[in-house]
Amino acid sequence: MKKLDKKFVIFIAFMVVVLLVPFVVTNSYMLRVLCNVMIYSIIALSINLIVGYSGQLDFGRAAFVGLGSYCSAILFTTLHVPFILSFLAGGLFSALFGALLGMLCRYSSFDYLTLITIGFSEICRKIFQNWYAVTNGSFGFRTSRPEFFGFVFDTPASMYYFCLVILALCYIAIRRITKSKYGRAYMALRDDSIAASYAGIDVKKFKLNCFVIASFFTGIAGALMAHFTTFISPTVYTTDESLLELQMAILGGLGSLPGSILGAAILTIVPEVSRAAYEYRLLIMGVMMVVLMLFAPKGLLGRGGVWDKVVALIKKKSSTSKNK
C-alpha cells in the first residue's frame, strides 16, 4: 500500500511541474521544443503499441504521421472544415491506411511486413512530393494553428497546453488498451502466436486492429504536428524519420509507456542542446541502436531494462552493506 502512495505522490508532483512549466519558462523556443517532445511522445507511444506490444516491426511510421498531417491540414485550410473535425479526420484517415496495412499482415510474414511498411512509406512520400494539386508537392503546405469556436491557440503557452491535453488523452487511452484484453491479446500474439490462437484470440484480427488503433494515434500526432509547425513539407516523412521515431520507442523501452515519453524527450532535446549531437545524430543513433540491442534490448524503462538493472544493483549494494 505504501509503495502505491509513493507512486501517486510522484505522479501528482510530476503533473504539477508539467502544468506550471509555461509560467516558469517564458522562452518561446523552449516551449516549442517541449511541444515537439509531446508530439513525438504520441508517435513513440503508437510505435510502442505495434513494436513493443504486438511485436511487429514497423519502419514506416513517418508515412502515417504524414497522412494525418496532410489530411488535417488540407481539410482545415483548403476545405475550411471546422478544426475539431479535421483534426480527428487526420487520425481516422491514418487509421484507414493502418487498416490497409494491417490487412496485409494476414498474408505476409514478419520480414515481409517490415518491407511492406518501408514500401508503403516510400509510396506515400512520392505522393506527398509529387501530387502538386493537393499537397503542393515539395514546396510544402501552409496551414494554421488550432482554433476552437473562435479561440486560436497562437501563443506558445496555449499551444503547450493544447499538446499536453492531447498527449494526456492519448496516453490514458493507450494505457487503458494495454491493460485490457486487447493489450493482453497483443502481447500473447507477440510471445507465441500459435498458443494465442489456441487461447481463442483471432491472431489476424488483433494484428489488424493493433495497426488500426496505433495508426489512429500516429495520425493524431501528425495532425497536431501540422497545426503546431503550421508548415508541412514532404521531407519530414522519410524512412530516416520513421527510424528516429522507432528509436525513441526502443530507447525508452519497448513495452513501457512512460519509457516512450522519456525516449522521445531525450532524442528531441539532446540534438537541440548540443550542436555536435545534431551533426552526428545518425552516427550516434546507429551506435545507440547496436549498443542497446546488445546490452539493454528493453531500453531505459522497459522490463529488465537499464532502470530495473540500476535499481536491482542499488538494492543489492544496500543489502550487502547492511549485512556487513
Partner: peptide, 18 residues
C-alpha cells in the same frame, strides 16, 4: 527473436553511412 537483430543491423547501416 526477430526485432533485436533487425534493429541492430539498422544501427550498423547508420554507422557505416556516417
Amino acid at each position: 527473436g526477430r526485432v533485436a537483430p533487425t534493429i541492430s543491423a539498422v544501427g550498423i547501416a547508420y554507422i557505416m553511412r556516417n
